[in-house]
């Protein structure tokens, strides 16, 4: 079958491969541009780059506002991830195991923030916190991020639960294990890689989040909010230097997530 039209097939494959290469260029050339300019000795971002310098990185390491923002981002992303995992795993278990009235509505609501622009989550929560007298702070940001990230955790964990043979949990409870023991010793180890994957993704998304943070943060800035406010003052290679470090960190996390979310058990 495949030998019927070797020439046209070859032409089509070449065209496709060229297309794939172009798409990759579209995706990655900009990132290289970002990195290249972080070493530019000129203040303005013009091509060709006049000379090489590490000044922008030196400036970064002397910038205490930026360091405070990084610490804040770690704080927010860590707790938002923990909350999203606790609530999200529970919700995925409920969706997988239980039948209850309003289940469809519940599923839709909990998955809504995946498609719902963050600005709606941010504004509606801001209004609620104001109404009940809570001032915007990093803690309100944490609650906002956890809400926005729930859907991510639920989809990933739920997909894994569905591939899990139900007989495993049944066997455990038939043998007299209480539900919490079954959960800790049977269910959790089996969904471990999905939970870790969802956790890492939530962490990255929270670390990177702007729309929800914009409305819910008080005087403290997270890293993206700090960069956002710097951008108001114009573009500088200093932003490119932060950006390059963020790209590096993302790369490390991607590799980590690939390694950690692999199932250790033979399939």
């Amino acid at each position: 079958m495949t030998q019927r039209k070797p020439l046209s097939r070859f032409a089509a494959d070449t065209a496709l491969m060229t297309y794939v290469a172009l798409l990759m260029a579209f995706l990655y050339v900009p990132i290289w541009v970002l990195i290249a300019f972080s070493f530019s000795s000129s203040r303005s971002l013009t091509w060709p780059i006049p000379g090489f310098t590490l000044d922008w990185y030196r400036k970064l390491f002397a910038n205490t506002d930026l360091q405070a923002a990084v610490v804040n981002s770690f704080y927010v992303a860590t707790f938002a991830t923990i909350l999203a995992l606790i609530v999200g795993v529970a919700a995925a278990m409920a969706l997988h195991r239980l039948n209850f009235p309003g289940k469809t509505l519940f599923r839709r609501l909990i998955l809504l923030p995946i498609t719902l622009p963050g600005i709606v989550t941010g504004i509606s929560m801001l209004n609620m916190f104001r109404l009940f007298g809570f001032n915007p702070s990093l803690e309100t940001v944490i609650l906002g991020h956890a809400t926005a990230l729930l859907g991510v955790v639920v989809t990933q964990v739920f997909a894994r639960l569905q591939r899990l043979p139900r007989s495993l949990e049944e066997a455990s409870s038939d043998l007299g294990a209480p539900p919490w023991k079954t959960f800790l010793l049977v269910t959790l180890p089996n969904i471990r890689s999905a939970v870790i994957g969802a956790g890492l993704l939530s962490f990255v998304l929270s670390f990177d989040e702007i729309p929800v943070t914009f409305f819910l943060t008080g005087r403290d800035n997270t890293l993206p909010m700090y960069i956002y406010s710097t951008m108001r003052r114009g573009v500088t290679p200093e932003i490119n230097a932060v950006g390059t470090l963020i790209v590096l960190a993302s790369l490390v996390l991607i590799i980590l997530s690939v390694l950690l979310s692999r199932d250790r058990s033979p399939r």
Partner: peptide
């Protein structure tokens, strides 16, 4: 993979590419 790289930065890059002094 680009999903893991800051959304803000990915928008910012295009400002530097498309600008009058850009690439």
């Amino acid at each position: 993979a680009p999903l893991w790289v800051s959304y803000l930065l990915r928008a910012y890059i295009w400002k530097t590419i498309l600008g009058t002094e850009g690439i």
